Computed example of a mutant assay.
Amino acid sequence: MITAADLLDHPRGRRFCFELVNGVQQPDDPDAVASALAAVPLPVLSEDSVVVALESTAESALWWQPPDATDALLSRPELRPALTRIARWAVDSPVVRQLAEPQGGAWTVVFDDDDDQPRRPSTGQALHDWAQQLRDEVAAGSPGVTSGVWWTTPPWPLLQTTRAPFPSAGPLALWAVEDSFGQEHARALSTPIDPAARVFTVDGPDDWAALCRRWPLDVTTTTRRNDWRLATGRQGTWVLPDWSGVAAEYDLVHLTVAGWFRTSGDAVKVDDDRASVVAGWTPDSAYWLTDHELGTGTWAAWSRPGNSGVWRRHD
């Protein structure tokens, strides 16, 4: 469940509210924007409109540069009353509630046109290699002000699944992607859910901070220091979870849709000295930290010509 405060108090939530009424023009003056938002009609939301709004919101996650002009504008106190009206309308919508609490099975998504099932090396080996490469990067350090790896997801090729809150639009991993590459073709496979899996659920910043305190990897000497400073405005020590350590106690880490709204775009306080970010995540992503079967079904083809609009399945 998400609340109006979940949307109003965080960058992605405010952007989602704005994208839901994307017909509003952006005058330069905050008071004029506030007036426009206060007057915009609030119709009954459709599944497609929510899909497009969430996709645009995810695309606004710019972890290698400062927040864009729209995000900066939406954070102004003059816009709070008008955004409160929109946030309350959004969370009262059955469609938004369905987005925030997706039901049904999980899906693996692959963005390519290859008809073959992708090969995946051992999860344990992939985590070991990732941790070693990151420690090498930390030891080498990053000279000057540069950009580099900024995401905090478990590494490829760990299995990632998402659910499909609106079956006709497909799994969230098709369209709610931070820094997407503009793909137009994908395949999705129904992937079994293991009820015995040990799951760490990230439902907000406190959960992410707990992960970072329990399994911290200090990345302050890497390019992340500069990228995350630009994105959040914070300077200081930065950490991310050591996924190779998390895998010793959990099979799966799951970021809920509400967790994404509550964390993406903010610096998450880990303790008095350290902070982290939830960057590069698709809402509802579940990453398998231990080996897990893809499933034996048939890959379903999805596409959207011109990299615009809603993804649709075709057989």
Rank of each mutant, 00 (worst) to 15 (best):
193 I>C: 11
237 T>A: 14
263 T>V: 08
196 A>R: 13
242 D>M: 07
246 V>M: 08
201 T>D: 13
236 G>W: 04
228 W>R: 02
257 V>Y: 02
211 L>N: 05
247 A>S: 10
228 W>F: 07
209 A>I: 09
195 P>D: 07
187 R>P: 00
262 R>C: 03
255 L>M: 11
260 W>G: 01
211 L>K: 01
263 T>Y: 05
191 T>S: 02
192 P>C: 04
242 D>Y: 00
257 V>C: 04
269 K>Y: 15
232 T>N: 01
231 A>F: 06
253 V>K: 00
274 R>S: 10
260 W>C: 05
194 D>Y: 01
211 L>S: 04
222 T>K: 12
207 D>P: 08
261 F>L: 13
194 D>N: 15
233 G>D: 03
260 W>N: 02
242 D>V: 08
272 D>Q: 14
205 P>E: 06
238 W>G: 03
184 E>A: 00
257 V>H: 00
242 D>E: 12
213 R>Y: 01
272 D>M: 10
192 P>D: 03
232 T>M: 00
273 D>E: 10
213 R>E: 14
189 L>G: 02
242 D>N: 07
189 L>W: 00
240 L>M: 15
256 T>S: 11
188 A>L: 02
184 E>F: 06
190 S>E: 05
202 V>A: 09
206 D>E: 13
252 L>I: 09
235 Q>E: 15
202 V>N: 09
215 W>E: 07
199 V>Y: 09
250 Y>D: 05
250 Y>C: 08
199 V>K: 08
200 F>M: 08
189 L>H: 00
270 V>K: 14
202 V>D: 06
212 C>A: 13
247 A>L: 08
228 W>L: 06
